[in-house]
Design a protein around this nucleic acid. Structure first.
Lengths: 191, 191
DNA sequence: GAAGTGATGGGACTTGGTCTCATCAACCGT
DNA sequence: ACGGTTGATGAGACCAAGTCCCATCACTTC
């Protein structure tokens, strides 16, 4: 594996994050990101499908962790507990290093339509992955979809809770999913 | 309001749908769509923010219908009933003419990543709109979000149910939301 | 040391999208 | 009827995203 400087991909991510913060996403050209990373436009697109993707690395790993956890959950576990296992399984990826550039990343995403769009697609991807995994356990299709959708909602909120404080993501995820469950119960019972 | 031929916007939509069907979305250039509609690229982008948007007209109207219905629902209505009112309120837009090019539209969207992305964003838009409207009624934030998310799920499925058969969308929406409610209840009670 | 492999550089090319200016049809008031 | 205004369109320059192809270089292996 011939290389000049190592970690081209990570260097691109850092350069992108910095430049987006300095000048905004739209005012930053891909060529400029590559240049700051000591690379070229060609190499950038060899590492990322498009300009947006540089902010969404590793989402496929998350989906994989979720589906594995769902597949391996005890056969008699209740749907919500299976979903909880899926969220907890992603905790290994929520490292301190990831937390470091988290807020900056969220800010950039919030500032731009294209990026919000990509974020939405990633969430849908999680929902689809979890739905399929739940169906494979024999859960009826609609129940699987509902459970997955609520799981993604909880995951999203858990991330936002975890970012400022840090700590154990698994714990935050469990608590957040518990809140969602309570909210569901609240909807069912008349007020 | 000076014009040469009327209905430029609709002509663009028709031309786009036809060309996408014939050659695929990616193999169709905006200039080509405009040409078939007897217009130019400039005019296309005056009517649509980007190439994708030509397939997603009127989504803002839907969001508006939903939020209005939620705001005007009886003060003592239960959350799920408010959401039901929101879905039912959109029925006026589901005309036979819209049903005509529905399948073609769905097929094109399914064929392309960019378009699935845009579709996902539109759904998120609905969810946000409904969440806000529900919060304005005094519903706790998380309950509002959960109710909205489930409403969007039902809306999505109702549309796919309605497309092949046609008929009264309001009826389909009510039935679909009922199914979602039942699924939620199924998740809560042990199996 | 020669051949092979994998990542990179470089540049041509297409197309989406923006911007600016000119044009033309309809409308309006006198 | 006539000139001015308005609003939609045409035309073309321009930039950046993304694709493609081929040359190049570092590192490995035999």
């Amino acid at each position: 594996m011939g290389r000049w400087e190592p970690d081209a991909r990570e260097r691109l991510v850092r350069a992108a994050l910095d430049l987006f913060g300095e000048q905004g996403y739209e005012n930053t050209a891909v060529a400029q990101i590559a240049e700051r990373a000591g690379l070229t436009k060609s190499t950038f697109f060899r590492h990322f499908r498009d300009k947006r993707e540089v902010l969404f690395g590793g989402q496929d790993v998350l989906a994989e962790l979720m589906t594995s956890a769902i597949a391996e959950a005890p056969a008699d576990a209740l749907p919500f507990d299976v979903v909880e296992a899926a969220l907890v399984a992603t905790a290994v990826t929520f490292t301190d290093e990831r937390r470091a550039h988290g807020p900056q990343r969220l800010e950039v995403i919030a500032s731009n339509d294209e990026l919000r769009e990509r974020a939405a697609l990633k969430m849908v991807g999680f929902a689809v992955a979890m739905t399929d995994a739940l169906k494979r356990r024999g859960l009826p299709e609609l129940e699987a979809a509902v459970a997955a959708e609520l799981g993604v909602l909880a995951f999203d909120r858990a991330y936002e809770r975890w970012l400022p404080t840090g700590g154990d993501f698994a714990e935050v995820a469990r608590r957040t999913l518990g809140d969602v469950r309570a909210a569901v119960a609240g909807l069912e019972s008349a007020e």
